[in-house]
Design a protein around this nucleic acid. Structure first.
Lengths: 150, 150
DNA sequence: ATAAGATCGTATCACATGAAACCAGAGGGG
DNA sequence: CCCCTCTGGTTTCATGTGATACGATCTTAT
């Protein structure tokens, strides 16, 4: 019998930890602002990048285009983003934060960062850098393998 | 404007990487054995621990009890696990791998480990240890905060 | 100019998932 | 012994999500 336990299996630990961290942040802004993860991501990107089309958002967030569409729709209904026609392409629109959207973004992002810092204060800056480097390598490796058999 | 980009946000990176790794492993045994993640986890734990009740499985896997129940049901239907009455408690049953279940487990787990090793060969043993330690700290920190405001 | 094909966004469907209701049995008092 | 509560397991329901199909528009080749 293989001695490796599920609880010690690295991918499993990564998943658990990642979920705990994301869940914590997600929980805060869900309860406080009523935003779900996809919506929050859109807000984050729009607040950072200015005016984008849905297509751009798909690329930026790595989310499904359906998810992007839905998130944009509710954000629009709630008055956080504004759609304006795209003069260069009749199919798509430009999306950007409204004043109230920008306002929300101004509160929400620092809040996420604050929670993040609370958690990550458990490790040293050196460790943080190490973590970043390691995750980078793993991601590259995973993508490389994925690419192989396709 | 806050200069931190979503793509650089650590929790985001963790999620992306973790998904890439898990997804890769999940993809393999889904296409090869037709097992979904919850089912695979149950197999892994049962193969490791022997005979357990659903309640034990919930505790061991941290999965929802509904998810556990569903996974057990399909595994039973496919003949990989066997239910026997629990003499000490008429409500629950003992679950254990059948011969064919044990057989499958014998193939599936090494396969997962192999894929895991392929990915994690991208980092050194020292880095792996470092990663384990860092994740541990983060998980503890997250859990501590979670516990606070509840 | 027109037809063919690609692309963006939207709607529809089928399935996965979690919450809550539910049932049967266990565990204690009284 | 009976009642009340608790708990393991199952079912149901409401919601979320991705794959797919679709319509409109853009692009390209003829």
């Amino acid at each position: 019998m293989n001695s490796t336990r599920l609880a010690d299996f690295m991918p499993y630990r990564m998943a658990i930890t990642s979920n705990a961290v994301s869940g914590l942040i997600a929980g805060e802004y869900r309860s406080e602002f009523g935003l779900k993860i996809p919506e929050w991501r859109i807000m984050a990107v729009l607040g950072d990048a200015g005016s984008l089309t849905q297509r751009d958002l798909v690329q930026a967030t790595l989310m499904d285009k359906v998810a992007v569409n839905r998130a944009c729709k509710v954000l629009e209904e709630r008055g956080f983003v504004h759609r304006s026609p795209n003069e260069h392409d009749g199919r798509s629109h430009h999306l950007e934060l409204t004043t109230s959207g920008r306002d929300l973004h101004g509160k929400i992002w620092p809040q996420a960062v604050e929670t993040y810092e609370k958690i990550f204060s458990a490790i040293t800056p050196r460790e943080l850098e190490k973590l970043r480097a390691i995750l980078d390598k793993l991601l590259k490796a995973a993508r490389a393998i994925e690419g192989d058999d396709k």
